[in-house]
């Protein structure tokens, strides 16, 4: 087992808006190691992107991170630092963000400035995070473009983002993210909105680069098919909490948490789904301002236990050797 690079401990993210408090992330705990791909899965509004924004120091007011620790190990064998101690605009945070902790965004269309040549985006990152000279930066940028599969790098370096297709822009984004050999790469829905064949190209590319440059990848997605194809471990989130964490084979074959089970059954083509009618989860995700007492999933749960599930928040504990889950069905106190 490689060493842990990033560890989240009980991280919370809150937004104090005019209409009330949105508790986007309610105590998220996970860790990723080098060479590992952790997928964070959940429906829209479950806080899966917010938790990674916290690690990037990207939570803007009115949002804040009121509690938790995000421990990051910058070099092998070095001590960990708590990223949350840094102010989001501090020098240390700016050094880490985009340097050692990198991110790929969902929107390759808007993430690149239309008025700058794409080389400028690469040059900027290299300029901020390395001591390379101008020529060296250019060479490194061209090397990066070649690495992510953009032919004619030296010519393409001088082109503008509108001259590239969606898939090509996502490749450029990846090149920008990888420019400084990050230790952790957050990939936030990297293939949503791309065509299947392009999606396959991008996922293969991320895998290849992960092997070559040794980093941890946190893949944030709603697409279970992408997870099944690329992840090593999977964390399923619901309403700001991780409800289940296990390795990919276990979670697809024997999910434990009722939400995960229902999710797996509702996805066409998954091992648990029937061919005829799809199983569905009753109801829908409650609106962000609504407070659900006890287990957040209990109003939609088939194994709802009155008096327990709607009162006590289940703890995030191992259900067996392979799975950690937050469900009263598996906690010792209430029996099985």
């Amino acid at each position: 087992m490689s060493e842990t690079v990033l560890e989240m401990k009980e991280v919370h993210v809150r937004y104090d808006t005019d209409d009330g408090v949105v508790h986007a992330v309610r105590g998220v705990t996970y860790s990723v190691s080098l060479d590992e791909t952790l997928a964070i899965v959940g429906e829209s509004g479950c806080g899966k992107s917010q938790s990674s924004f916290a690690a990037m120091g990207l939570i803007q007011p009115p949002g804040r991170v009121p509690a938790g620790e995000i421990l990051f190990r910058e070099k092998p064998g070095a001590d960990t630092v708590n990223v949350l101690k840094f102010h989001r605009n501090s020098r240390q945070m700016r050094r880490l963000r985009g340097g050692k902790i990198a991110m790929i965004f969902q929107e390759p269309m808007t993430a690149l400035s239309p008025v700058h040549r794409i080389g400028m985006h690469l040059d900027e990152v290299l300029c901020l995070h390395t001591n390379l000279g101008k020529q060296e930066r250019f060479e490194r940028a061209c090397q990066l473009l070649t690495d992510v599969g953009i032919p004619d790098a030296e010519k393409r370096y001088h082109q503008y983002s509108f001259e590239f297709s969606g898939g090509m822009r996502q490749r450029i984004m990846i090149a920008v993210a990888l420019a400084c050999n990050p230790r952790v790469l957050f990939a936030d829905e990297p293939t949503t909105g791309l065509d299947v064949t392009i999606q396959a190209q991008i996922l293969e590319l991320i895998k290849k680069l992960q092997r070559e440059s040794r980093m941890a990848v946190v893949l944030i997605t709603h697409d279970l098919a992408v997870v099944a194809e690329t992840a090593d471990r999977v964390a399923v989130m619901y309403l700001g909490r991780i409800v289940e964490l296990a390795d990919v084979d276990t979670i697809f074959a024997t999910p434990k948490h009722p939400y995960t089970i229902a999710l797996m059954k509702s996805v066409i083509g998954s091992p648990l789904a029937d061919d005829g009618r799809l199983q569905v989860i009753r109801g829908s995700v409650p609106p962000p301002l609504e407070h659900v007492p006890g287990c957040p999933f209990h109003p939609r749960c088939d194994s709802f236990m009155p008096g327990v599930c709607d009162k006590v928040i289940p703890e995030f504990l191992p259900a067996d050797e392979k799975t950690i889950t937050a469900c009263h069905l598996y906690s010792k106190k209430n029996g099985n």
Binding site: T197, A200, D223, A228, E229, F252, G269
Partner: peptide, 13 residues
């Protein structure tokens, strides 16, 4: 197209 389309089943990787 069929080959590129991911399936939600890790055993079939």
């Amino acid at each position: 197209l069929l080959a590129a389309s991911p399936k939600p089943d890790p055993t079939g990787r």
